[in-house]
């Protein structure tokens, strides 16, 4: 459980630090604190919520999920019947596709002004194409292993391989749904301000999934 505990510890430290900053030294009942609407908090009401926060909370949940898988992986690895994985070399190409996809997303994010519209469209499409290519590549890697007679029940290492790549792909698929909606809007020529948020969120999500993939891939390679 070490991996998970490290993640939890980091998260808890961040939360504690943030809370401390919010709460240290305040005496909520004090008269001086009564009339003032504090500067640090804008007193925002049900308006213009920063939707990115919602995404970040979700990323924390997803990180918890993947770190638990990694913990389980490492604990299962210590048992006697573990045989190391034969990594399909195709995975390197897939990783490349995912990196390119993430780069394209970042490019789209940086070109969100009106005058950069054509570049934006191009970048968003490219990001999607590379992401789909990655998924296709992962599928091929599964098929290669299957052809070698290496199924999920063959050995726990393969079980984890199928499980973790499958789960990662499932997350990416969720991202592609949002990407699809944004791409359709872009092609239709909808007001840019209505697409920008989706692209922003997609970009953050893409980087997150790339990071997770690199960690998973590193784990698969090294064991």
């Amino acid at each position: 459980m070490t991996t998970t505990l490290i993640f939890m510890a980091v998260l808890m430290i961040v939360v504690a630090w943030w809370l401390l900053r919010q709460t240290a030294g305040t005496e909520p009942w004090q008269e001086s604190a009564m009339g003032a609407i504090t500067g640090g908090h804008g007193g925002r009401s049900f308006i213009q919520v920063d939707r990115k926060l919602g995404l970040f909370v979700f990323l924390a949940v997803a990180t918890s999920l993947f770190s638990l898988f990694i913990s389980a992986y490492m604990m299962r690895m210590e048992l006697g019947d573990w045989r190391p994985l034969k990594d399909p070399s195709l995975l390197w190409w897939n990783t490349g596709a995912l990196v390119l996809s993430s780069v394209a997303m970042q490019w789209a994010r940086n070109n969100n002004k009106h005058e950069q519209l054509s570049r934006l469209r191009y970048a968003v499409l490219l990001a999607g194409v590379f992401a789909v290519a990655f998924m296709f590549g992962q599928w091929q890697a599964w098929k290669q292993l299957n052809a070698l007679g290496l199924f999920a029940y063959t050995n726990p290492a393969y079980a984890f391989f199928y499980l973790m790549t499958g789960l990662h792909a499932l997350h990416l698929m969720g991202g592609l749904v949002v990407w699809c909606l944004a791409a359709v809007k872009l092609l239709r020529g909808v007001e840019l301000s209505k697409v920008n948020l989706s692209i922003e969120l997609c970009a953050v999500y893409w980087h997150f999934l790339l990071l997770i993939w690199i960690i998973l891939f590193g784990l698969l390679l090294s064991t």
Binding site: Q22, T23, T26, I37, G42, G43, S45, V49, L53, F58
Partner: peptide, 24 residues
Amino acid sequence: FTMGGLNYVVTVLQARTRGMTLMR
């Protein structure tokens, strides 16, 4: 639950009315 939970967390963090600091 995760769908609901996202809501509760973000609402507490961002949708508080003016003057409702965390410690209030």
